[in-house]
Design a binder for these strands. Structure first.
Length: 564
DNA sequence: GGGTCTTGCGCG
DNA sequence: AAAGCGCGCAAGACCC
């Protein structure tokens, strides 16, 4: 059963439907107030319906605040974006109708906090006819059913929607964060928290050494212009102030300067100000944005949750009596490539440690070489060590390399490419099309042709990587969705005293190919088993019986810093 | 004074 | 000047 939730002027319309979108004969639609919605949802939830709503981030946080968890949903907005762009649904009515309500990002924007038990409909855009979720749901079902492979596209929409639930739940639960430990880390690296407008003592001391070595007492190290001038005045030949460039230079000012950059970055990005802004009541609650990246990866907004530097991961600590289970899908993208290409030789070689396996075939000499060569294949390297090693990979694994090469050529021609489950890449922009057109015009100059070729190659690198990164994102969604169900069942016997959601082991963090579970200590080992089992399931879901392994490294720790 | 672009660096 | 992919954020640079 599906139950569609629609926001109406007086409250909420609740419409039960059969799975094909036709009205459920034995169930009448109901109209409710927002205040009574959580109870109504909780009452129906034991039947495990798929809740159909326009945008998970608008409905689910308030349900979670009211203590209501749902097992399944359809996020119409996320699904619509996939179906609008997918080559697999390109001939559907949905994909060929004019852009409207479901294509506007406005539906997406939401800043509902778990604390605010209010639904966020104040800024809902004016509803036209096309905004009716029942109509949209039916259009989506048809688009999926008429696709060449409905099962794959259907799986993608289910996984994307599950991701939206998880994103809301992770924000609700929050990442356990010790403000005290964070402050200790900052103090040991930077010195005690300084008065506003002044540098911490240790940072100041490093800066003094830089100024001294450069003979520039007034240097503002945070100004690239100023810094560049000072470095040149000290005799260095240099065009940028990037750390990587500075490392090539032998000068006594460089080591303290690199240290200054490292520390000032920590202060600016994850210092006390960040702590005040993003951590409350021992939890870090970033705003996850499922589908926020074209490839299907998640983004976050605020708090930089996907860029937590290793330096401060020590501040992520479980509650007393709990553990963190930190799991990482080992060498995910190379495995995904082997699966996508159906390259059983590569899959076989990479069965355990992927890169050691490549070395064992004799394709390259060392693990480091194998890694660089694989990255080159997936990113489209043409120069450097990576570009040099790639031909050897091509000889050893022609099938895998041909797959990414084909994706690159398609992109160079301005065509779209698709992931395993059917998420398609965007078309290149107008500027790109214009540049390609110009290059073949009658009066095209050499510079124009060069520019067009460079743009074509660049887009080819994007599409090359899109199929791998995007399919890896699909795998990760399936992994996490499966894990979510397994974790819930693991806590099934528990009496949910406070909140049925946060009492049980639950997901608290996700980073592309890594997940973190906050688990009661006595369940931690079993959580680790479920993490591994869910990885096996995800591989089967996406690649069927193909013999690809997805090993997971799993650490049960008292601090995120101890995970690797 | 305020908005946008650029630089630099964190993560996978 | 371009350069192996995808991001977000802070602060300076730049412009009106």
């Amino acid at each position: 059963m599906h139950v569609v939730l629609a926001h109406t002027p007086d409250g909420v319309q609740l419409t039960p439907l059969n799975d094909d979108g036709t009205p459920a004969p034995d169930r009448a639609p109901q109209t409710l107030t927002l205040a009574t919605l959580p109870d109504a949802v909780a009452q129906l939830e034991p039947e495990a319906p798929r809740w159909v709503w326009d945008d998970t981030s608008r409905w689910y946080p308030a349900l979670l605040s009211a203590g209501v968890r749902v097992e399944r949903c359809v996020d119409l907005r996320l699904s619509h974006v996939i179906l609008r762009n997918s080559a697999a649904s390109a001939s559907s009515e949905l994909a060929n109708s004019p852009r409207g309500h479901w294509d506007t990002a406005a539906v997406a924007l939401s800043t509902v906090t778990p604390e605010a038990a209010l639904f966020d409909f104040d800024d809902a855009p004016a509803h036209g006819d096309d905004a009716d979720p029942v109509t949209e749901f039916r259009a989506q079902r048809i688009a999926v059913a008429t696709a060449p492979d409905p099962a794959r596209l259907g799986l993608l929409l289910a996984a994307e929607s599950a991701g939206a639930l998880i994103a809301a739940e992770m924000r609700f639960a929050g990442l356990p964060w010790s403000e005290h430990r964070h402050d200790e880390l900052l103090t040991s690296l930077l010195g005690p928290r300084p008065r506003p407008g002044t540098r911490p003592a240790l940072l100041d001391a490093v800066l003094a050494r830089v100024r001294d070595e450069l003979g520039a007492p007034e240097l503002n190290p945070d100004s690239p212009n100023d810094l560049l001038r000072a470095l040149r005045a000290a005799g260095m030949i240099i065009t940028s102030t990037r750390s990587w460039d500075l490392k090539q230079i032998d000068h006594p000012a460089i080591p303290p300067l690199l240290e200054y950059k490292k520390l000032s970055r920590l202060l600016a990005a994850n210092g006390w100000h960040w702590l005040d802004t993003w951590v409350a009541d021992g939890r870090f609650r970033p705003d996850y944005v499922p589908g926020g990246v074209v490839t299907g990866r998640w983004a976050t907004s605020g708090g930089g949750a996907l860029q937590l530097p290793k330096q401060i991961r020590g501040a992520v600590v479980p509650d007393p009596g709990w553990k963190l289970v930190v799991a990482d899908a080992a060498q995910l993208e190379p495995r995904i490539l082997a699966g996508l290409a159906g390259d059983t030789r590569m899959a076989e070689a990479g069965r355990e440690d992927f890169y050691e396996g490549i070395v064992a075939t004799g394709a390259v000499a060392t693990r480091a070489e194998a890694k660089v060569a694989m990255l080159g294949a997936m990113y489209g390297a043409t120069t450097g060590e990576s570009g040099r090693l790639m031909p050897r990979l091509t000889r050893a694994f022609p099938q895998a390399i041909a797959h990414v090469e084909a994706a690159a050529r398609a992109g160079e021609r301005g065509e779209i490419v698709s992931t395993r489950l059917g998420r398609s890449s965007p078309l290149p922009g107008e500027d790109w099309q214009q540049a390609q057109g110009d290059a073949y015009g009658p009066e095209a100059g050499e510079a124009q042709q060069k520019r067009a070729l460079s743009a074509a190659r660049s887009w080819g690198r994007f599409t090359r990587n899109f199929v791998v990164q995007g399919t890896a994102a699909e795998w990760a969604l399936c992994w996490m969705a499966g894990l979510r169900n397994r974790l819930w069942q693991l806590g099934e016997h528990m009496d949910d005293t406070q909140n049925g959601f946060t009492d049980r082991p639950h997901l608290v963090f996700f980073l592309h190919d890594e997940v973190m579970v906050h688990a009661p200590e006595h369940l931690a080992e079993r959580v680790a088993d479920e993490v591994r089992a869910a990885a096996v399931d995800a591989g089967r879901l996406i690649f069927g019986r193909m013999p690809i392994t997805f090993p997971v490294t799993c650490a049960i720790v008292d601090s995120y810093a101890d995970a690797k």
